[in-house]
Each structure stands twice: as C-alpha cells, then as structure tokens.
C-alpha cells in the first residue's frame, strides 16, 4: 500500500494496512538537545531512525508529494532597518506566517532588542 493510499484510508475511516506512523516534528532547540543526547548529527530523518532503534523493520514510507501554491504578496516587502536606536532597532521585516516553513509575506515595523 502506498503512503498516499494509507493516509487517505486513515482520514476517510477506511481500513489501511497500517495507520500512518507520523510521530511528530522537533523544533530547532529540540534537535539541538537531541544531538547532545545521542541522536547522530548526520541522521536526516530522525523519525525513521527512532523507529529503527525501537526495532522497526518495515520499509519507511515515501515523503509527502509537493505542489506549491503561493498565496502571498507579490512582490513581498523588502526587509530593511528603518531606525537604529541605542537599545533596539526598528525593522521592516518579513514575517514567518506558518509553523510548517511557509514564509509570511508582508512588511512590519518592529522594535527589536538584541
């Protein structure tokens, strides 16, 4: 059964051969901690690696397919420093709009304290 069919069957209350195994995604700080705790730095897919460590032997499914549709501003705002202050910086910036690596699209001025 393909990964696609397995996910569709799960989402649509049919009976896949197995429920998709999608443990989750670590934040950058999480990955930094895991590397210090034993996750090798050269491991690309830590979920498959964890599955193998847990004794899993089944073929790991293919990644999701991609077809990107850009809903954002075209053109986007330029990122630029508007004002330097003694203790902060006013910046027109791009904003990350989505937790799953979509980039936001508008300019904002923000006071940033480094």
């Amino acid at each position: 059964m393909t990964a696609r069919r397995r996910m569709l069957d799960a989402m649509l209350f049919r009976r896949p051969d197995r429920v998709p195994l999608q443990p989750g995604g670590g934040r950058r700080s999480t990955l930094e901690a895991w590397h210090a705790q034993g996750l090798p730095a050269d491991v690309l897919d830590y979920n498959e690696y964890a599955y193998r460590l847990a004794g899993g032997t089944l073929p790991w499914p293919v990644a999701d397919s991609r077809f990107r549709v850009n809903e954002r501003l075209i053109p986007i705002f330029d990122e630029k420093v508007i004002e330097e202050r003694p203790d902060s910086r006013v910046v027109q910036e791009l904003e990350r709009q989505h937790l799953r690596n979509r980039q936001g699209v508008y300019g904002r001025a923000s006071a940033r304290r480094d």
Partner: peptide, 9 residues
C-alpha cells in the same frame, strides 16, 4: 505515491 496537501491561510 506520496500524500499531497495544498495549504492556505
């Protein structure tokens, strides 16, 4: 073979 999602706000 991979599941395909399109994402929108």
């Amino acid at each position: 073979e991979g599941y395909l999602q399109l994402h929108f706000s």
